[in-house]
Design a protein around this nucleic acid. Structure first.
Length: 565
RNA sequence: UGGGGAGUAGUGAAAUGGCAUCACCGCAGACUUUGGAUCUGCUUUUCCAGGUUCGAAUCCUGGCUCCCCAGCCA
């Protein structure tokens, strides 16, 4: 019998889009099942905001037994590139979505789109306009004043047909003429003031090469691309709300049967981040960011390299919901999602980020014991592993305090704590650098009766520390990532560079990790006990492991410290 | 000041005339061989003013605030 994977079972979410779909299905608005599309322009890398759009489009289709296409909206060759096509497909697959054989390009429809435009002209609904870009702008009017009609608005069908054909033939220079819809220059909706449908632009298209010198505009190509693919619900973001009358006008003017319906929802915004490609590119160019896959970025590539699981991102998108409210979500919610996911799945290991030497003087010099430690207390099936222990170990510098405050639960002079899975140790002597006064080593004793980390006398210890055996530990570099910006709205005055967090990446070179990590592969994720979740970075070499901190564990102690406790 | 949208807890999301609910965040406690996880509890919400109604987040009227639109970008 086949197991049903709950997470892969589409669950119908109640949101306003689903309500509309339910109503459309009830009234037989369409002659076909629900069909959506995700329509990226191949002009950049996908980010967390796109992930929401992907989840909404693929998710809505799946929840209704329908299909979702991947369509590249490539109608502007000056801004688009094949490089992004591949990258975008890779990112969508990584998120876990599958468009099967339904990969489309708006550019595949250029000929059909052209023929539709000819039809529009024949119906008197489009005309060739010779106004310059500046004049078009002038004639368009303003938000409060109506526009004026172009002097070319009433050309004959024959003349328009001839001119449009010659635009296609390349008889006119770039920008000299456009094809415009003949709608209403006095419309209060600027989009309806005879919008441009086609422009002359000699640019090599990444797919059609130099075949065309006229290219359709988004407002014209999109509704028709939807219609050609049989899309029922064309889901897009809020700023296209006042384009909807134009979307519908195009479909009506061409009498498209069962026309697709555009529905707008709020895009995903995250605090402490920026989405502006231009501003991010500047930070990359300045060398502040390592590239589009910098682990501090919320690009899908950045999140992937950081170590985020695709499942946690999809879950995040599910949790934020779908509505029409302009909103900014908490980064903490995203972090919650990846913690929740990794808590269930990530193997636990011990890693000491800032090592402090501990010599256990009562422990035999040449003895090495191996302790079996559980891999994941959340998942007994994950089993355990052997971790070697010896006379000299390293613990975290933060796990020792010479003069501990009341609530400090770890090692201090004279105190006994547990080394996870090994022994209780008691601090007998503190060795300091005679010059700096810095604590360089602790001399401890151990209780042989506490083997494995507990005693039969029921005695309690204050706390448990993680450790690595000096003789067995592997050196590693650990990159501690944090928020890229120090304020929730880094673009508040247009220059996010002014709010960079100087601690967004702290590189620790002298970390020591337990020997089992020698077998780790790039991309593997672990919980470093008591510290957080970490992912092996591609910068790893034979000589050196490099880990990225995905997210810290929730840390009650640091809160106590901050609050002055 | 034209048009299109949106206002529910700190952040988001439900409630479709009938007890304002959920998640995250925050706070407190229990438990803990991770100061993790888990469990328990708590604080904080319907933009405003009228009206309809036995009853309004929801319907009506008026106002306020915020977002988007004047690319041959998408």
């Amino acid at each position: 019998m086949e197991l049903v994977n709950e997470t892969s079972t589409p669950i119908k979410q109640t949101n306003f889009i689903q309500d509309i779909i339910d109503e459309d299905m009830r009234t037989n608005r369409f002659d076909r099942p629900v069909h959506t599309r995700f329509p990226p322009e191949p002009n950049g890398y996908l980010h967390i905001g796109h992930a929401k759009a992907i989840c909404v489009n693929f998710g809505t289709a799946a929840a209704n037994g329908g299909l979702c296409n991947l369509r590249f909206d490539d109608t502007n060759p000056t801004k688009e590139d094949e490089e992004y096509v591949e990258a975008i497909m890779e990112d969508i697959r990584w998120l876990g979505f599958d468009w099967e054989d339904r990969l489309y390009f708006a550019s595949d429809y250029f000929e059909q789109l052209y023929q539709y435009a000819v039809e529009l002209i024949k119906r008197g609904k489009a005309y060739v306009c010779d106004l310059t870009p500046e004049q078009i702008k002038e004639y368009r009017g303003t938000l409060t004043e109506p526009g004026r009609e172009s002097p070319y608005r009433n050309r004959s069908v024959e003349e328009n047909l001839d001119l449009f054909q010659r635009m296609r033939n390349g008889e006119f220079p770039d920008g000299s003429r456009v094809l415009r819809a003949r709608i209403d220059m006095a419309s209060p909706n600027m989009n309806m003031r005879d919008p441009v449908l086609y422009r002359i632009m000699r640019a090599t298209h990444h797919r059609t090469g130099d075949k065309w010198c006229i290219y359709p505009m988004y407002d014209y190509a999109h509704p028709l691309s939807d219609a050609i693919e049989g899309i029922t619900h064309s889901l897009c973001s809020l700023e296209f709300e006042d384009h909807r009358p134009l979307y519908n006008w195009i479909l009506e003017a061409l009498e498209i049967p069962y026309p697709p319906k555009q529905i707008e929802f709020a895009r995903l915004n995250l605090n402490y981040t920026i989405a502006s490609k231009r501003k991010l590119r500047r930070l990359i160019d300045q060398g502040i960011l390592a590239g589009w896959d910098d682990p501090r970025l919320v690009t899908l590539r950045g999140l992937r390299r950081r170590g985020y699981t695709p499942e946690s991102i999809v879950e995040f998108c599910r949790l934020v919901g779908v509505s029409k409210t302009n909103s900014v979500h908490d980064l903490a919610m995203l972090e919650h999602c990846v913690r929740e996911d990794l808590n269930k799945r990530a193997q636990r290991v011990m890693a000491v980020l800032r090592p402090l030497k501990v010599t256990i003087e009562t422990y035999p010099e040449d003895l090495v014991e191996e302790f079996e430690i559980e891999n994941n207390p959340e998942d007994p099936a994950a089993g355990g592993r052997k971790v070697p222990f010896s006379r000299v170990v390293y613990i975290e510098q933060d796990d020792f305090m010479e003069n501990p405050p009341k609530k400090f639960h770890r090692l201090a002079p004279g105190r006994e704590i547990r080394l996870k899975g090994a022994y209780y140790i008691t601090c007998r002597e503190v060795i300091k650098d005679p010059v700096t006064g810095e604590v360089t080593e602790l001399i401890c004793t151990h209780d042989p009766a506490s083997r494995g980390g507990y005693t039969s006398d029921g005695r309690r210890v204050l706390g448990t520390s993680h450790w690595v055996s000096a003789a067995h530990a592997i050196p590693a570099e650990v990159r501690l990532y944090d928020k890229l910006f120090t304020v929730p709205d880094p673009d508040r005055d247009g220059d996010p560079g002014a709010y960079l967090n100087p601690e967004s990446m702290v590189v620790l070179q002298n970390c020591l990790v337990e020997p089992s990590l020698a077998a780790a592969a790039v991309g593997d994720r672990f919980q470093f006990l008591r510290q957080g979740y970490f992912c092996l970075d591609p910068d790893t070499t034979k000589e050196k492991l490099v880990f990225n901190r995905i997210v810290s564990l929730k840390d009650t102690w640091s809160k106590i410290q901050k609050s002055g406790g």
